[in-house]
Design a protein around this nucleic acid. Structure first.
Length: 431
RNA sequence: GCCUCGGUGGUGUAGCCUGGGAACACGUCGGCCUGUGGAGCCGAAGACCCCGGGUUCAAAUCCCGGCCGAGGCCCCA
């Protein structure tokens, strides 16, 4: 063994110890239940894909974040940086599957970025994709699933912000910004919350927008009103659909969302509706979840044009937000019962194994203590590990056909006849 | 790509400014106590103070370079 090995996990990755892994699993399971309750089915795809596929519809910036490599046969591959493109591949290639399709996943993805709070190079996404529904009601369903999933895990005061790209684009172009500067303008507008109106106006001036035009543009954007003037056909369409999504959510699902024209979202494949979720009291974490409509992706990947809408929850961010809110209360216990043979004679040991097996079969977590330490040390260890009971087994017990059950919480112990052991422990566990 | 901070036993830290004995907590192991004192007390093991160079009689400490990490900007889950 070399002494020089780096024992930390690589930058941007992490280990999950039992308690953390448990929290992640519980949260993931609650999310899955919500996804499945809406009729979504799980899909699992490879960690790596052909590089060309991943590049197909990603912005240039995202392409640079792909972990790319060649396999031994020279194939150009890359680790998936999100799940939507791989799933679009499935949909594009499996035209035999009847639409609409409802898929979900809980999987790790990889991006070569500079790590920060809530930003990892390997992270988990839990998301859904809805293919074959072009109506705004599909977008509303996606938002509703997101809402229910976040509620199910106990996230408090989160805010869902919705937008349609075409509306902002319409307004920005209408204000007089040339088409080629649109991306820069959108980026500037996104800074509204962070740097304030004055900053945005001055930045827009650099893009050639007069101050009064910029101010009136900001007025419209800030209003979050669905009753604004649009100048283009796509803009009108976007506005109409956005209003429908908001209405459906409010009137049918009872979910209130905020219209925020600054939400644009980075991934290049969104074609209209977009949304984002941020949680209260989790500043600096970025968005917990996000999604939108991507009607072109399946065709870009080589399939027919199939409308689609989807979203992803950042599992690590969700966990961190939950723990910041103090909403991550889990009763984690690794061990329920510790079986301690006093001496390791064959008779005692086989009785200990039998006792442990009996309780394990009944669904309890049982450690059979086999290390050579004094009884008091072993009791101490069992207690620290969080076990509720210690079962002490030696010659005396064997002779009498009983076991000594020590309640490590109540500091009591009692001899219990073998046939009543499980009953005794089960009764004690629930107090 | 830019910026800030950091790297000291297994883990988390103090010490660094104002250079000279490497400390504390937890953890581990043991003794008091070879079938029940989970507490407590006592003890032990465990660190070439990230690497390399420089300054100095003397460097964990000051200086330079590198490597690694955590955050911020950008962007994003």
């Amino acid at each position: 063994m070399s002494k020089n090995l780096v024992l930390q996990p690589p930058r941007g990755t992490r280990d999950w110890l039992p308690e953390e892994a448990y929290a992640k699993r519980i949260v993931s399971e609650k999310i899955r239940e919500v996804f499945e309750s809406y009729g979504y089915g799980e899909v699992i795809t490879p960690a790596f894909e052909y590089l060309d596929l991943l590049k197909a519809k990603a912005g240039e910036e995202v392409v640079e974040q792909i972990y790319a490599f060649k396999d031994k046969a020279g194939r150009e591959l890359g680790l998936r940086f999100e799940m939507t493109t791989p799933i679009a591949r499935i949909v594009a290639s499996r035209l035999d599957l009847a639409k609409p399709l409802r898929f979900y996943y809980v999987q790790p993805v990889w991006r070569y970025e500079e790590p920060q709070r809530g930003r990892w190079r390997e992270f988990w996404q839990a998301g859904i994709e809805l293919f074959g529904i072009s109506e705004p009601e599909g977008d509303a369903e996606v938002v509703a699933v997101t809402f229910d999933a976040l509620k199910a895990v106990g996230l408090k005061d989160f805010d869902i912000r919705v937008n349609d790209r075409r509306v902002v684009e319409d307004l920005v172009l209408g204000a007089g910004i040339p088409g080629d500067l649109l991306p820069s303008a959108l980026r500037v507008l996104d800074k509204m919350d962070k740097f304030g109106e004055e900053y945005v106006v001055s930045e827009l001036a650099k893009l050639g927008l007069r101050e009064d035009a910029a101010t009136s543009l900001l007025e419209k954007l800030k209003s979050g009103s669905l009753d604004i003037d649009t100048s283009t056909q796509p803009g009108r369409e976007g506005l109409r659909r956005l209003a429908l999504v908001v209405d459906t959510l409010k009137n049918c699902y009872g979910i209130n969302v905020t219209v925020d024209y600054a939400i644009v979202r980075g991934l290049g494949y969104y074609t209209g509706f977009v949304f984002e979720v941020k949680a209260g009291s989790s500043e600096g974490l970025g968005s917990i979840a996000g999604g939108g409509r991507y009607d072109d992706l399946v065709s870009v990947v080589g399939g027919p044009k199939i409308p689609a809408s989807g979203m992803a929850i950042g599992v690590e961010r969700l966990l961190e937000a939950l723990s910041m809110q103090g909403a991550l209360k889990l009763d984690y216990r690794e061990v329920d019962v510790c079986v301690i043979p006093v001496k390791k004679t064959p008779e005692i040991l086989s009785e200990a194994v039998a006792v442990a097996r009996e309780l394990r079969v009944a669904g309890m977590k049982v450690v059979l203590e086999v290390s050579e330490r004094s009884l008091s040390k072993l009791l101490e260890a069992a207690s620290k590990r969080g076990a509720r009971f210690a079962i002490i087994l030696g010659e005396r017990e064997l002779k009498e056909g009983v076991v000594t059950v020590r309640d490590l919480y109540l500091w009591k112990e009692e001899k219990v006849a073998r046939p009543h052991l499980y009953e005794y422990i089960r009764a004690g566990s629930s107090t």
